[in-house]
Amino acid sequence: MTASGTSTSHREYFWRKLHSFTGIFPIGAFLAEHFWSNSYALVSVEKYNEVSRGLQTIPWRVPLEALLIWLPILFHGGYGVYLWWKGKSNVLDYPWMANWMYTLQRWTGLVAFVFIGWHVYTERFLTQGKSTYADVERALSDPLYFWLYIVGIVATSFHLGNGIWNFLCKWGIATSARAQRGAAWFGALVGVTFTAVGLAIVLGVRFDWKPFEFYTLPRQ
């Protein structure tokens, strides 16, 4: 990605843009899918298991997982740690809103990375890719795991919502102050929605709360 006829290195620029892009696609997109399919836990155990089984048995599963999920997450997280190390927050000296967002973005990224790593390890690898509702339920019955999930989901959702705002500003899609305010609201909406959905799933499994179960009942 170098402009022709120049010697300036654009390597860092490329990695940076790739980093911010992978955060939205495929990682953000996958997160949306993940929250979507896990929301079946709010319908019924059977439906949940049916949908998971469906996803677990798609053809070319492992290469698809590797290419669309693991590699992007490893890159986004790994490079993200490097970026986290390169920035030095000064939010205590300059406690302004966007500066708080900057600082939180870094720390939630770190939390999300660790959480996702642990989550993938326990739910994907320990279960040999055949996790069921019962596995998740067992995990969430442990209060420590339960709280880990809560923290992980909030951090990840914030990171995505704020990341979308960052993306819109940093790719020059929202440039004027007004457009950036709009983008901030949009990012906030995404963050709040993901947090709400994510927490609903965890609470649903933990407390056997099935708000959409009535969908499965026969017509009266």
């Binding site: 920035g87 960052n166 940093k170």
Partner: peptide
């Protein structure tokens, strides 16, 4: 060190 190093802290 160019524009991509901005991380939108907006200070």
């Amino acid at each position: 060190g160019g524009v991509h190093d901005c991380a939108n802290a907006q200070n």
